[in-house]
Design a protein around this nucleic acid. Sequence first.
DNA 1: ATGTTCTTGTGATCACTTTCACAAGCAGAG
DNA 2: CTCTGCTTGTGAAAGTGATCACAAGAACAT
Lengths: 216, 216
Amino acid sequence: MNARKISDSTVRRLSRYLRQLRDLDQHDRKVVSSRELAQATGTTAAQVRKDLSHFGSFGKRGQGYPVSDLRVQLEEILGLTHRWNVAVLGVGKIGSALLGYGYFAQRGFDIVAAYDADPAKTGLDLGGVRVQPLDALERGFADLEISIGIIATPPEAAQAAATRAVRAGASAILNFAPIKLDLPPGVALRTMDMTLELEGLCYMVTAARGDGEVGR
Amino acid sequence: MNARKISDSTVRRLSRYLRQLRDLDQHDRKVVSSRELAQATGTTAAQVRKDLSHFGSFGKRGQGYPVSDLRVQLEEILGLTHRWNVAVLGVGKIGSALLGYGYFAQRGFDIVAAYDADPAKTGLDLGGVRVQPLDALERGFADLEISIGIIATPPEAAQAAATRAVRAGASAILNFAPIKLDLPPGVALRTMDMTLELEGLCYMVTAARGDGEVGR
DNA sequence: ATGTTCTTGTGATCACTTTCACAAGCAGAG
DNA sequence: CTCTGCTTGTGAAAGTGATCACAAGAACAT
């Protein structure tokens, strides 16, 4: 078990499986087949089995997978057995929306700090978190054991903010700024680029005209 | 030129090239090499050339690519020669943040309508757009020629909202709700799932402990 | 004209993912 | 105990995307 290199797309699917499993578990379903899991998450049964097989053998032939056990296993694999402390850097439109976004806490992510370069924002209480000046970042990351930084600054400030967060101890960055971030190796990075996605949609719509089909 | 099926990842990269080209163009750079474009967007020179070669032959050997021409070509390929009208469905934390997000307009996307099921929100003015009840959706999509719907409702309402938007004429959906949407074929879909990305980061961080490296 | 230097465009190759197909195994009925 | 129906786990095959490597130009200097 425990294979070497698991692809990004596999990890994403694992997350989706977990989401579905939590739901099934809450409804007291005991067992689920790869087929059903696949249908609910938009993939194929074979893909589900391959994905899981990278980490072990969790199912029973002829029966399926035990919902509760598999849920726990996936939580362990994904590193979700404990809660994670998160900081938001940049409290503009996006940043403050994230501070009020309830689903993070529900899924084990606690936003415990918020920082902004604008002194006018210092002290603001947003969703129970008080906005602090950037200079409080190092102390905050250390004291609160923050391991994930969410970059929600304007693009110009994003690189500096990310670098600073990493130096202060962040081991992962979720970036909402529409730029490429350079981070030291060993730091995990995911970028959510909204205009990029919108442009992707435009391509699909435009390319579909005259053509037959459009993406999945 | 104009190949059959262009992969999602290629389209994403094209968007990044375009972003860089717009920047270079504004700074009056005339020519750029695949190497430089690659470096700025986080890929390789060969990849840049392959990506572009799917659509034609835009460069000059020994010289590079003409910045302004290539910019226009990419805008045409991606379908960004005209502006796009967008509607936001669901005006909670995320929805209202999007209404105030300036970079959309800057990149050619105009949010021209916002809808919410909650009557208490009807009439609110957010970033210059007045929130309307869901029942005004069909009229709005038709009158304003809205082709992209952004789903920012709670997960329970997302599928219904998306279906309704599509029936009202949307040809693309950008989904912020953490669920799998089922849409008729021919409708383009991209999902931005924040908790999914956070969980991906957790995996990387967790898997890295004991192991050597962590994903890019 | 010729040579030098540079960079594109692209077939070939390589690496990685997904899909296929089926033996292995479990449960329940007869 | 054996037979039947069902589902997992997995090697092999197919498919897809990324990388390599190099011939084909383009500009400029001599």
